[in-house]
């Protein structure tokens, strides 16, 4: 058996070195659309992180019994199971948020990160490291998306989490409406990828 990576390494990989967004450009599809408001993004990110971590844990538990040829089906089933639970919880206890997120909670199923981590790591590692791997990939992903949403909400509406920010909510700041509209998401994501890649390259050189 391959020796498992130490937990610290797993954490670092998920958060920065192999960050799903700017290194692997994975899984932006299902979340980018709701990054125009920080609160929606936060709820979505928490859901995604939980689903990733728990799916990885479950996949890892079952890895010794699952026949290889049907492992994709099993993974999809497990992911869908957790997504449906999240969807039902939101519908029952936070209906307003459930309406805001619309179909995007369901789309976590096709999010490449969840499936990607299950396939790449959880399928061949012990449960606890798999859980950590899923958790930290989720956090690394959330952290990038939250950064995007903070930029978008601040520049577009002058608020963060609905709270008016000094300067940005005053008439001196001409609100960049385009930032809360879909094109703004593309520009914000591109800028963040650019920034992170440049920073990483500098770090690698020195």
């Amino acid at each position: 058996m391959i020796p498992t990576k130490p937990t610290k390494e797993i954490m670092l990989d998920g958060l920065w070195r192999d960050n799903p967004i700017f290194r692997q450009i994975l899984g932006i599809c299902s979340t980018l659309a709701i990054t125009n408001v920080v609160l929606n993004t936060a709820v979505m990110c928490i859901s995604l992180t939980l689903v990733t971590a728990l799916s990885c844990l479950t996949v890892s538990f079952l890895r010794n019994w699952t026949p290889r040829n049907i492992r994709m089906m099993v993974q999809t089933l497990i992911i869908a199971f957790y997504v449906i639970i999240v969807d039902l919880i939101l519908k029952a206890y936070w209906p307003q948020m459930s309406r805001n997120l619309g179909p995007f909670v369901g789309l976590i199923i096709t999010n490449c990160i969840v499936m990607g981590r299950c396939e790449a790591f959880a399928g061949s590692n012990r449960p606890l490291p798999s859980f950590m791997d899923g958790l930290f990939n989720g956090i690394g992903y959330s952290f990038m998306l939250l950064a995007i949403s903070v930029v978008r909400e601040l520049l577009g509406m002058g608020t963060i989490l609905g709270i008016a920010m000094p300067y940005f909510s005053t008439p001196y700041w001409d609100k960049w409406i385009i930032m809360v509209m879909p094109p703004g998401a593309f520009f914000a994501l591109a800028s963040i990828i650019w920034l992170c890649r440049s920073m990483k390259r500098k770090g690698a050189k020195s």
Binding site: W65, P67, I70, M73, V74, L77, I85, L88, K91, A92
Partner: peptide
């Protein structure tokens, strides 16, 4: 046939949990 049985059991297990959970929240929803 193991794969088929395995998939069947797994689906049945998760579906049972989901149906139970949705019955619990249905009224609220």
């Amino acid at each position: 046939y193991f794969a088929v049985i395995y998939m069947f059991i797994l689906t049945a297990f998760f579906s049972a949990l989901l149906i139970g959970f949705s019955r619990m929240t249905r009224q609220r929803v």
